[in-house]
């Protein structure tokens, strides 16, 4: 029945094709802009950063801004991209389930011999592909920015930095399916999971700012996010977070299977 999964995922991606451009191009252009301006602000930045309190630098992952990779991490990868992609993930997965329920499409699809678990799996799989495409588009535009500006950005480092966002965002897709097990209203699903996303970010931030509270970071998936653009991808963290996303998706599919789909 992988044919059904592929057909559902293809249809999901086809519906989301505008979203791929709407998210990938602005993020990529923004990232490219950061890379392009780096050579002209390089010296001033280092001085400015040294004036920040050490705790603040630590909290936002701003170390030295001696190279473009460090600048890209501080400006894009420490906050904006993870939060944006996390939100995109939950929107994407919700469009295939609660969005489909609201539009009536779910009733039509469930008139065919397809299980709800397979629908949830297809929505999760398509979201994983959508996230990968948006990140790939962002990396490509960023690399183009580096070529144009001569910023000397390592493509492999940029790829690692953006790739590390993928499992993190996928966790929120998994949580989106869990939320669908409780509500078929897209606003409730996206709102509740977006709340979890921001809460997890704040928990990780507080844990980093206050060493006494560092233990609470284990409640947040951001604890395992790291700084891949400088340190490279941490395979155990990457695989572990991906596995957690899959577990959430499976739990959500189980809940979705058991719930009533009211008219």
């Amino acid at each position: 029945m992988s044919g059904q999964l592929a057909a559902l995922a293809r249809a999901h991606l086809s519906d989301r094709r505008r979203s791929l451009i709407a998210w990938g191009v602005p993020l990529g252009l923004w990232s490219a802009f950061i890379v392009i301006i780096f050579p002209s602000v390089e010296g001033a930045l280092s001085k400015a950063v040294q004036s920040y309190p050490p705790a603040l630098r630590e909290a936002f992952g701003i170390g030295e801004l001696a190279n473009v990779e460090q600048y890209l991490h501080a400006e894009m990868l420490s906050l904006i991209v993870p939060l944006a992609l996390g939100y995109l993930a939950v929107r994407a997965v919700a469009s295939g389930l609660s969005g489909a329920a609201e539009s009536g499409r779910l009733d039509v699809l469930l008139s065919a011999p397809v299980s709800r678990r397979r629908l949830a799996a297809a929505s999760f799989g398509a979201t994983a592909i959508e996230l990968a495409i948006v990140l790939a588009l962002t990396v490509i535009l960023t690399a183009l920015g580096s070529v144009v500006s001569g910023a000397d950005l390592s493509f492999a480092s940029a790829l690692a930095g953006y790739a590390a966002v993928w499992p993190l965002a996928l966790v929120f897709a998994g949580l989106g399916i869990v939320a669908t097990g409780f509500s078929l209203r897209t606003s409730v699903v996206t709102g509740s999971v977006a709340g979890v996303l921001v809460t997890m970010y704040v928990i990780d931030l507080v844990g980093r700012l206050d060493p006494d509270l560092s233990g609470i970071r284990y409640l947040s998936v951001f604890r395992y996010y790291g700084n891949a653009i400088e340190d490279g991808i941490d395979p155990p963290a990457f695989c572990g977070v991906t596995a957690a996303a899959i577990v959430f998706a499976m739990l959500g599919a189980w809940l979705f299977e058991r719930r009533d789909l009211s008219a």
Binding site: D15, A100, S103, G104, D107, S111, P113, V114
Partner: peptide
């Protein structure tokens, strides 16, 4: 699932997105 392989269904207030 086995049942739905053999039936056709027109839901009330049919919709499929825009």
């Amino acid at each position: 699932v086995a049942i739905r392989a053999r039936l056709g269904n027109l839901p009330g207030d049919f919709g499929y997105g825009r």
